[in-house]
Write a protein that binds this DNA or RNA. Sequence first.
DNA 1: CGTATTTGACCGGCGC
DNA 2: GCGCCGGTCAAATACG
Length: 424
Amino acid sequence: YHHLIDSIFFSLTYMEKKIEKDLHHHHHHHQQHQKEIKNTETKIEQHQEQKISQASSNIMANLVTSSSSDHHHHHHQLELAAGNLSSIFGDTSSSLPFPYSYFEDHSSNNPNSFLDLLRQDHQFASSSNSSSFSFDAFPLPNNNTNPFFTDMPLPQAESSEVVNTAPTSPNSTSVSSSSNEAANDNNNSIGKEVTVKDQEEGDQQQEQKGTTKPQLKAKKKNQKKAREARFAFLTKSDIDNLDDGYRWRKYGQKAVKNSPYPRSYYRCTTVGCGVKKRVERSSDDSSIVMTTYEGQHTHPFPMTPRGHIGMLTSPILDHGATTASSSSFSIPQPRYLLAQHHQPYNMYNNNNNSLSMVNRSSSDGTFVNLGPTSSSFPGFGYDMSQASTSTSSSIRDHGLLQDILPSQIRSDSINTQTNEEVRK
DNA sequence: CGTATTTGACCGGCGC
DNA sequence: GCGCCGGTCAAATACG
Ligand SMILES: [Zn+2]
C-alpha cells in the first residue's frame, strides 16, 4: 500500500476565458495564495498563468479530497499533495473530459478489467472504494505495489467550479482537462469547439461566452493544429512510470525549469493515434508524478496479451524506477468507448456542464459520465469527424468504433491476436 | 535485425 | 532581431 498512489486529476485548460472567469470569481483569494505558493509559481509561470493556477488550486483542493478506499491512509498524503500540486498545475482548469467513460467501456470489454470494477464502484458510488478496482483498472503496478491505483482517478471537472468530488468519492485523484489552445481559439467559439470538442462542448462554450475576453486573436485557430484537449492527472507514486494500458514511445525529455526532475514526452505508439503525454515529477513533492495527456486515443486500447490489460498483477512497474520505458504511466484516458452508452447524465444541459459533469462524477461516484456526455468528451466524442484534427483521421474511425463495440470479442481477439505486447 | 530510448539540434512563439 | 523556452525531430545508441 505504501506504494499506493493517489492520483489526482484535473484538467488543465488554458482556456483563457474560463480562467479569467475563475479568476474573477476567485481572484482575490487567489492572489494571496499565490504568494504563498511561490514555489509553485515558478512552475506555474511556465505552464500557465498564475491566475489560472489559483483557480485551479481551489478546485484541486476540492477534488483532492480523499480517496478513501479500503486501503488506508494514503489519503492524507494525497490530499496534501494535491494542494501543492494544484497550485502548480494551475493551468488546468476547465473541464475535464475524460474518461470515465472509458471505464465503462472497458468493463464491457474485459470483465476483469477495471472498468467493470469501476462501474460498479461508480455506480455504487461514491464512497465505496474505489480503490479496489482501481487496481485492476490499471495494469500496473499492483504487484509492485503500487500503486497508484488505489485511487482512481476521477475525473473531475476542473473548471472553475469545480466540483468537489471529494466527499464521497473515494478516490482522491483529481483531474482536469482543458483544451489548450482552445483557449486561444476560443475566441471564436468555433475554434474552440473544434479543438476542444470534448470538453468543451457544453461547458465551455457557455462559459466562454460569458467571459469576455480579450484574447488573442485567434489567428490560426483551427488551421494549424487544432489542438486537442488535454487533461492532467497527478499520481502519487515513487515510480515514475506508470502503466496506463497504452503503449508509449518516448520522444523527448527536457529539464524543467525549476525542478530537479525532467519532463518526458511520450507519444502513443499506435498508428494513427496521435495522443501524447508528458510526465514529470513535482519538484515540490517528489512523490507526486504529474502526467498530462493530450488528445484521445483512437483505439480502445492495446491490451496486453493476456487478458487484462496490462497485467494487472504483473509486475512490472516496480522497479520501474529506472526509467521506464515505454509505457509509462497510467491514466485513464478517455475512451471512446462508450460511445454508445447511454448514459445517464444529462449533464450538459446545465449551464456549466462542467459542473454538472463534475458533480456527476462525484456524486455518482465519479466518473462515469462522460462518456455519455457525448459530446464532450473526447472519448467518444470525436468521432471521426473530428478526429481528423491532427493526423490521420482516417484511421481511427472505423477502427475505433469497431473495436469498441465488440468489446468482448475484441478481447478475445486480442488475446489471440496480438499483441504482442510485451509484458515482460 | 527490429524496435525503443537517448540526447543534442531545431523550430516556432513570445517578450523584450 | 535576439534570446529564452517549451516542444519536437532524428541520428546515434541500446536492447533483446
Ligand atoms: Zn493511442
